[in-house]
Amino acid sequence: MAAAWRWRSGLGALLCALRKCPLWRGSALGAGAHSFCAVSDVQSACRGSVVSQELLNEGFHRELLVKAELDAAGQRAGGCTVAARTRLPSGVYVDPYELASLRRHNVTEAVLIPDAVDVEAPEYSAAELTAVLYLQPDPRCSHCFRAVLPVHGRYQRPAGSGEDALVALRGAEIVACCCDEHLSPECWQPAEVEAPCLGNKDHLCQWYSATHQPEDEELILQVPVGHTEHSFLVCVVTLLATVLCSSLILAAVCKHGDFSLLTCLE
């Protein structure tokens, strides 16, 4: 993909250089090159807006690290609210109670759509989820932003093979909300985002989406899957554990409990 992008960039640079030749002027090919270069000039001014995602930790409980670097035309968004809108498949979810705790400690700020999430639902009965993750300025870069969103894998259907289930996370979309700033129309276009601008429902304004966002490759989350051949063993162990724990609780109640009639009347 990178090699193809460099090849197209080199060909575009060659066409833009040849359009200045007098022999090309007035010809159909020259007019086409001029139109191509005009579009290319706009795209080159906005091409630097890059968003990347990375999965941290292992197992069911992971952290999605989202980093965004705005181009020179979007550096004015530094005074705005910058967020990443990501669509999570049914194989993962965000715990709203955990998110509320992180919000109280000023660690992570995000809006879930829908806001009601069934954390106990398995993958085959859950719905997709959209998260608007508010990004914080990166002190190491003047026009960079980053944030971490905790995500959790859902239980999958048992399978006969020992392979893990693969859950694909699509790339995030960078959006910005500027109530007092004006973003370049060549690099930003109005977007419908169901989230407040500054995390405050009383302060709403227009969101904008970066027009030239590169397509990032999907992240693949591996989720362990139970084996169908272990069903009998799991049922037997679960039943024995339930009977043992219930017996211990009943024995403790009979030994230390007071079952006198006077106690019951009181």
Rank of each mutant, 00 (worst) to 15 (best):
P214M: 02
Y208E: 13
D202E: 06
T228I: 11
H212P: 03
L204S: 08
W207T: 03
N200G: 01
H212A: 00
H230V: 00
I249S: 00
Q206H: 06
S231N: 11
L239E: 03
S247C: 14
V243I: 06
G226T: 03
V237W: 04
N200Y: 04
L198G: 09
A251F: 03
G199F: 03
Q222T: 02
L204Q: 15
Q222F: 06
V237Q: 06
I249G: 02
W207E: 01
L244G: 05
V243A: 10
L198R: 11
L248M: 11
Q213S: 12
H230N: 12
S231Q: 13
V234N: 04
L204C: 06
I220S: 04
C245T: 14
H230T: 12
C245I: 08
L219C: 03
T242E: 06
L198Y: 14
T211V: 15
L250T: 08
H227P: 00
W207F: 15
T242Y: 06
V223F: 01
L198E: 07
L239S: 13
C205L: 05
C235N: 15
L233Q: 14
T238H: 06
T242F: 11
V223K: 02
W207R: 02
L219Q: 10
V225E: 03
A251K: 07
A241Q: 07
E218D: 13
T242P: 06
H203Q: 14
G199S: 04
V236L: 09
A210E: 00
Q222M: 09
L219A: 10
G226V: 04
L250R: 09
T228M: 13
H212Y: 14
C245N: 08
T238F: 09
P224T: 00
H230K: 15
L240V: 10
T238S: 13
G226D: 12
L239K: 06
H227R: 15
L233W: 12
D216E: 13
S246R: 00
V234C: 05
L233F: 13
D202Y: 11
E215K: 04
C245L: 09
N200K: 01
